[in-house]
Amino acid sequence: MPTITTDDGVKLYYEETGSGSPIVFVHEFAGDHRSWEPQVRALSRRHRCITYGARGFPPSDVPPDASSYSQARACTDIRCVLDGLGIDKAHIVGLSMGGFATLHFGLTYPERALSLLIAGCGYGAEKEQSAKFRGEADIIADRLRRDGMPKFAETYALGPTRVQLQNKDPRGWREFADQLAEHSAEGSANTQQGVQKERPSIFDLEEGMKKITVPTLIVTGDEDWPCLIPNIFMKRAIPSAALFVMPNTGHTLNLEEPDLFNRAIADFVAQVEAGRWPMRDPRATIESITGVK
């Protein structure tokens, strides 16, 4: 079983397919390395596609102590994957929890990123939602430890931004929910309390985001309500960012609309590799609608 070992001794399982410029996929809380299968099948025809399981998500190690999990650690684990596979730079694609890690990777290791695709990123980021989100992380962790993963998955897979997948693709949703039920309750609980609960708000990262020059694409579904305002904020803060909104789409957007999502990645990466991804024209930031000062 292929693994890389992080600098704090945790083994992360990975898979790689194809050749060409590398794309590293960073999964969400309700997903794992398998969640990127529609992307790997399409994009490995031209790229070296790498998926891996975050710490706490078997077959990666499940550290028993929540202190082994954090937003900074999730970011550093991406770098450890690159180091372990001998990759200098890669396109980094992350969804939700993985989108937060991708954003932090761009802030911390910009020299290691060819591009950043940040999808479904923003849950709990709004200041008025912070206390509620932190409280929900504790509730989720308690339920995971008390009831186990299969029972938790029955309800979590039917959240208000997941039902869109069920409505469009019942078979795909069933596979998603079944895979979620196979996760480690301990690892998921520790992830909730170490990563999700303690991560900083996107709105506190504005000054750092203003300095990002790595080509960036922000992707959200228009029915992923908690992410809409944070995504607009990131678009405005990051001078190298574009915003792509997928219509009638929820949170699990790479599974819900795989063809549209794959085209977005492919077009984005092609523009980056052709040297055609722009920085924002300063004239586009003038507050007057007409451009008159």
Rank of each mutant, 00 (worst) to 15 (best):
M1L: 15
T5K: 09
D7G: 10
V10E: 10
E16M: 15
E16R: 15
S19P: 05
S21N: 13
P22T: 10
I23N: 09
V24Q: 03
F25M: 10
V26G: 05
H27E: 06
F29V: 13
G31Y: 00
H33Q: 12
H33V: 12
H33P: 04
S35V: 14
W36N: 04
E37V: 11
Q39M: 02
Q39D: 00
Q39F: 02
V40E: 07
R41K: 15
C49V: 11
Y52D: 09
A54E: 13
G56A: 12
F57M: 05
P59G: 04
P63M: 00
P64Q: 14
D65G: 07
D65Y: 07
D65R: 07
A66M: 11
S67D: 14
R73I: 15
A74E: 08
C75D: 03
D77H: 00
D77T: 02
D77N: 02
L82W: 06
L82N: 06
L85Y: 01
L85V: 02
D88P: 01
K89Y: 05
A90W: 01
V93K: 03
V93S: 04
G94F: 07
G94V: 09
L95N: 11
L95A: 08
A101F: 04
T102E: 02
L103H: 00
H104W: 13
H104Q: 14
F105C: 14
F105G: 11
G106R: 06
G106L: 05
P110Q: 05
R112I: 10
S115L: 02
G120Y: 03
G122K: 09
Y123E: 05
A125S: 12
K127L: 13
K127E: 15
Q129W: 11
Q129T: 13
S130Q: 14
A131F: 04
R134N: 01
R134L: 03
G135V: 09
E136D: 08
A137C: 14
I139F: 14
L144T: 07
L144A: 01
P150L: 10
A153M: 00
A153G: 00
P160Q: 05
R162I: 08
V163G: 00
V163L: 12
Q166M: 15
N167W: 08
K168P: 02
D169E: 12
P170S: 03
R174T: 10
Q179M: 13
L180C: 07
A181I: 04
H183L: 15
G187Q: 01
G187C: 04
S188Y: 14
Q192K: 11
Q193N: 15
V195E: 00
V195S: 00
K197E: 09
I202W: 05
I202T: 08
F203P: 03
L205D: 09
E206C: 07
E207G: 09
K210M: 11
T213G: 06
T220Q: 11
L228F: 02
N231C: 11
F233H: 08
K235V: 05
K235W: 09
K235P: 00
A237D: 01
P239N: 07
S240L: 04
L243V: 03
F244Y: 12
V245G: 03
M246E: 00
P247A: 04
N248L: 12
N248M: 12
N248Y: 10
T252C: 07
L253G: 01
L253N: 00
N254G: 01
N254K: 03
E256C: 00
P258D: 05
R263Y: 06
A264S: 05
D267Q: 10
D267H: 10
D267P: 02
A270L: 09
W277G: 11
P278V: 10
T285Q: 13
T285I: 12
S288M: 07
G291A: 15
V292T: 14
